[in-house]
C-alpha cells in the first residue's frame, strides 16, 4: 500500500495525509485525517474555531508534529528526519494570519533572506527575483521600507511574496485575511486568486466564502478535529450533506 501510494505521489499527488492523528497532551486534536491533494488543486478548509484546521495545515510543514499516521508531501514522508523536514519546508510556502514578517529587516531583505541562506542564490539574483514577486503583489515601491511602516494588507502581500521567492510548489495559507481591516481583504485575496490561476497547489484555511466559491476545487469542512465533509464548492454550498455543515453554513452566510 505504502509503495503504491508513493508511486502515485510522485506523479500527481502533492500532499497525502493518511490516517493522521495528533494530540496536545491528552487532548485529541486531530482524529483520523485522510486527505489527498493533487498537483494544482486548490483546497479551502473551513470550520468553526478550534476545529483543528490550522493545526492540520501546520502539520504539513511540521510546525506541529503528528503522532500517528502518515504525511507525504511531494513524495517525501515526514518523519523525525531533520533533513527531510528541511527539504519539505523549502518546497512548501506558508502564509500566516499575523504575517510574521521579520521586523528588523526591510521588505526586500525579508524576501531575499531565505533564498540567499537556504538556496545559496547570489544576492543580486535573489534581489532580482524578489523584485519580480514584489511587483506581482503590486508593492515594488515599498521594497526598502520596514514591515512596521506598511499597512496590514501590504504586509500580508509581502509575506506572500516572501514565500514565493523560494519557488515553492505548494502554498499553505493559515487564515491570511483574518487579521486584516475589511478594506484590505480584497487586495490580499486578489493576489491569492492570481496565484491560483497560475496553477499553484494551494491549501487555504479561510472564512472567505466568496474566495472559496471562485477559486476552490474542493471545500473541506472540519469540526472537532475531524474532516466532516469535502465537496466541490457548488455542491458544498448549495447542497451540504451533514447537519453540522448546514449549521455552520447557515451561521456564517447569515452574517456574510
Amino acid at each position: 500500500m505504502s509503495e503504491a501510494a508513493m508511486q502515485k505521489t510522485d506523479n500527481d499527488v502533492a500532499i497525502q495525509l493518511i490516517g493522521m492523528h495528533k494530540w496536545y497532551g491528552e487532548f485529541h486534536v486531530l482524529r483520523d485525517i485522510n486527505l489527498s491533494v493533487e498537483r494544482g488543486e486548490k483546497i479551502v478548509v473551513c470550520g468553526p474555531s478550534g476545529s483543528g484546521k490550522s493545526t492540520m495545515i501546520r502539520c504539513i510543514n511540521r510546525l506541529e508534529e503528528h503522532q500517528q499516521g502518515q504525511i507525504i508531501v511531494d513524495g517525501i514522508e515526514l518523519t523525525n528526519d531533520v533533513k527531510k523536514i528541511d527539504e519539505i519546508r523549502r518546497e512548501v510556502g506558508m502564509v500566516f494570519q499575523h504575517f510574521n514578517l521579520f521586523p528588523h529587516l526591510t521588505v526586500l531583505e525579508n524576501c531575499t533572506l531565505a533564498p540567499i541562506w537556504v538556496r545559496k542564490i547570489p544576492k543580486e539574483e535573489a534581489e532580482a527575483t524578489a523584485m519580480k514577486f514584489l511587483e506581482r503583489v503590486k508593492i515594488p515601491e515599498q521594497a526598502l521600507k520596514y514591515p512596521g511602516q506598511l499597512s496590514g494588507g501590504q504586509q500580508q502581500r509581502v509575506a506572500i511574496a516572501r514565500s514565493l521567492c523560494m519557488n515553492p510548489r505548494i502554498m499553505l495559507f493559515d487564515e491570511p485575511t483574518s487579521a486584516l481591516d475589511p478594506e484590505m481583504i480584497s487586495e490580499v485575496l486578489d493576489t491569492m486568486i492570481s496565484l491560483a490561476e497560475e496553477g499553484m497547489t494551494m491549501i487555504c484555511v479561510t472564512h472567505e466564502m466568496g474566495f472559496a466559491k471562485t477559486v476552490a476545487d474542493r471545500v473541506i469542512f472540519m469540526d472537532a478535529g475531524e474532516i466532516i465533509e469535502q465537496a466541490p464548492p457548488q455542491e458544498f454550498f448549495d447542497n451540504p450533506q451533514s447537519e453540522r455543515t448546514k449549521l455552520f453554513l447557515s451561521q456564517i452566510l447569515h452574517n456574510g
Binding site: N61, V82, R89, N100, F102, A114, V118
Partner: peptide, 9 residues
C-alpha cells in the same frame, strides 16, 4: 515559525 517555514535551520 516563519523562519522555519522558509526552510531556515
Amino acid at each position: 515559525e516563519a523562519a522555519k517555514s522558509l526552510g531556515l535551520g
